[in-house]
Design a protein around this nucleic acid. Structure first.
Lengths: 234, 234
DNA sequence: ATAATAGTGTCTCTTAGACAATATTTC
DNA sequence: GAAATATTGTCTAAGAGACACTATTAT
């Protein structure tokens, strides 16, 4: 069983798929492409494609992201989400896909790729569950759950914000991704008190109205201790 | 780039590798096999093997585990850890491996597989870092970090225990995996107070000496809220 | 009785959450 | 001034950690 001769086995293809989450007009949205050919022709799907011969998995994910959104690597958070390889998830052949999760600030309109007839940002609330191709409904659900969970114990929420942001803008990220309301005063105290979460820029902005708010950049912490606690409801 | 014709690409092989963690003689240990052929002949490696044509990823991981340890699925915790696919991680051909993490109670001695010259439980403290084949040092490190982290917010620590266990035995799991000492009294209060973590069996045991201890089974919670907090040191 | 481990109670300190109060802007 | 948002302060309840104390077994 471990002869390591690939010719003993039928062909396998390896792809990367992307769950790209962003916040547009106060709604959590994901990037979808409409499939231009069979199977699932005309259905919406997660963006993705083959891993090239001399390319690592993360590199393939970054390349696909750039092809679809013209967004460079440094501006977003990208992490591996998990691999999906049920034998018949693609009716044509054995395809194992390595899904990646991307958290990004509000990005420009997407670019339709060569194989995709169209691409768009779809608010998650408007997505009919059964409408995605392949097992992409499950992958999207897993990505959303991962994002919600990571907001608790890591500073990735800042990936949804522009490079400089206010506490209120960061709070809106938590409220939208978690679907809850948070007390602005307690949130402010907690987030500014968490070591390494935020680095003050030293300037202020009034773009949200009212009293000027401090601008922050993301700090250098990789983990939040203690974590941000999601209200008990969910 | 998305023609979905596998013949456009050179062959790729997909394997599963296993990070199997258990506690033997109060030491955290992992299952290793000695490689019987090149490359890395004679070196220790994580157990693993090819994904079969009609087999899902989790099924392949369970099969490899059973081949190596003669352990059935229900007794252990198995989850996908992540995929590793740097282009030249295997010198022979492009191999993408889907690593899985297994947490198991103390198991019998391993069985050498067909391709492995030998198999053994290796205490992590005795493992020389540079001695593992391929990128298995990194995979093992990632698995260990995942296990340490999951002990905080999930009840997986019970996977290291036999079906019925005492609070003290569970505490030893935390102490050994985290490498810290925990106060038995506070631990007891916390773990018995966490909803769904433990289900009392109603019987007691004196196998640890002293006053008889309540026996527990794992409860039905999948997440611990609030989490078990690891002491600040690390 | 002594040793060993199990389990409970109590105290203090920190933190979460509710919410009052103050500060600084625009209109 | 009125409205809006930012930020600080105060109170209370819950939980973490330190540790005294009691309980139940084996020898």
């Amino acid at each position: 069983m471990k002869g390591y001769d690939a010719r003993d086995f039928p062909p396998v293809a390896v792809t990367v798929d992307l769950v790209v989450l962003t916040i547009r007009a106060d709604r959590l949205s994901t990037l979808l492409v409409r499939r231009g050919g069979p199977p699932y022709q005309g259905r919406w799907a997660l963006p993705g494609g083959f891993v090239h011969p001399d390319e690592g998995l993360a590199a393939a994910a970054h390349r696909e992201l750039a092809e679809e959104t013209a967004v460079g690597a440094p501006a977003v958070h990208l992490e591996q989400l998990g691999s999906y390889g049920e034998p018949r998830r693609d009716p044509r052949m054995r395809v194992i896909t390595v899904a990646h999760l991307v958290l990004a600030p509000d990005l420009p309109a997407p670019v339709a790729g060569s194989d995709a007839a169209a691409a768009r940002w779809c608010p998650l609330a408007e997505l009919e569950p059964g409408k995605l191709a392949f097992d992409h409904r499950q992958i999207l659900a897993d990505g959303l759950e991962r994002a919600r969970f990571k907001l608790e114990y890591s500073p990735v929420a800042t990936a949804f914000c522009p490079p400089e942001f206010t506490v209120a803008e960061l709070r809106r990220v938590y409220e939208i991704v978690w679907g809850v309301g948070l007390d602005p005063r307690n949130f402010h105290r907690k987030v500014t008190g968490a070591a390494g979460f935020l680095a003050p820029v030293g300037r202020t902005t009034t773009r949200d109205g009212g009293r000027p708010a401090q601008l922050f950049r993301r700090g250098d912490a990789t983990v939040l201790r203690p974590p941000m606690l999601r209200p008990a409801s969910s």
